[in-house]
Simulated scan of single mutants.
Amino acid sequence: MRPSITPRTGPTTIRRAVGRDAKRLTRLVRGSRAYEGQFAAMVADYRVGPTYIETHRVFVAVAADEHESRVLGFYSLVLDPPELDLLFVADEAQGRGIGRLLVAHMKSEARAAGLDRVRVVSHPPAEGFYRGVGAVHTGTASANPPAVAWDRPEFEFRIP
């Protein structure tokens, strides 16, 4: 486990996800306001399962308070091919530096794994976020109906 880091939400720790986190991560994905309206179908049946968590590098940002450990966000780094597969921040934690913290952690993990770049196929409303955290626009991923009915911007994190 890495040491605690303090973004604008107070003490936050990033730790490796475990199988018992699966339901909380699934709820975070399905309940995300970023996927309301036209995007709702994409996550309606989405599930972050224990096998997925065990197979990939999934990390959660948690805020420890007196009563419980709250999941503020998470990401999944796939190593082959290198891709940031998932990155979600809880609606109530957005704008507090959690996404930036998760991206910094992901870059550190990618570097430790020997990667020099990590691809991201972005949810269209998240395009500004990825540009803001240093991702470079590399193209467009075409729609893939029925699951994804819209084109998505592609980015790349270059890992020094």
Rank of each mutant, 00 (worst) to 15 (best):
G99L: 10
R117L: 03
E54G: 14
H123S: 07
K107I: 09
T9G: 12
Q38P: 14
G37V: 14
F74C: 11
P153N: 02
V43Y: 09
A149I: 14
A135D: 08
P124G: 08
S76R: 07
A34W: 09
I5T: 14
N144Y: 13
A141C: 11
L101W: 07
A63S: 13
R100P: 02
G128Y: 01
R27I: 12
G10M: 05
Y35P: 03
I98T: 15
V120F: 10
R70A: 10
V103I: 14
Q94I: 02
A44M: 09
D80N: 10
A135L: 00
V118C: 02
Y35H: 13
R96N: 13
V103E: 01
V62F: 06
D65Y: 06
S4N: 02
A126F: 02
M106F: 04
T138F: 08
E127V: 07
E109M: 12
A143L: 04
M42A: 12
H137I: 06
S76I: 03
A41D: 13
G10L: 00
G10R: 01
S69I: 08
A113F: 11
T13Y: 01
D45F: 05
A135H: 08
V89R: 11
G31Q: 04
R24Y: 00
R30T: 10
V60T: 15
S122G: 01
Y35K: 03
L87M: 14
M1F: 01
A41G: 15
Y130S: 07
S142F: 04
A113G: 13
G99Y: 11
A63L: 10
E156F: 06
A90S: 12
E83R: 14
R111S: 03
R15W: 06
G10S: 02
S69C: 02
T12I: 12
L101I: 13
E54S: 13
V136M: 03
F39L: 15
I159F: 04
I14G: 10
R2L: 05
F59E: 15
T140M: 11
T13K: 04
I98Q: 04
H123C: 06
L79V: 12
E54H: 12
Y130R: 11
P11I: 01
E154P: 05
S142A: 15
H105I: 06
L87N: 10
P81E: 08
A17W: 04
S32A: 13
T13H: 02
G49R: 11
A135V: 11
R119M: 13
F155H: 09
R24M: 00
A126R: 08
V58F: 04
P82Q: 07
G134A: 05
R119L: 14
V118K: 07
V103Y: 00
Y35T: 09
D91C: 08
G49Y: 06
A113D: 03
H56K: 04
R15H: 04
P7G: 02
E66V: 12
L84I: 11
E68G: 12
R158T: 12
M106D: 05
A22Y: 03
N144T: 15
V136H: 06
H67D: 14
R2T: 11
G128F: 04
A112V: 10
E66C: 03
A143F: 00
A90L: 04
Y46I: 10
G31F: 00
A34P: 01
D45R: 10
R158A: 09
R8Q: 02
R57K: 15
H56W: 08
I53G: 01
E109G: 10
P145K: 10
R8S: 06
V29A: 06
F88W: 05
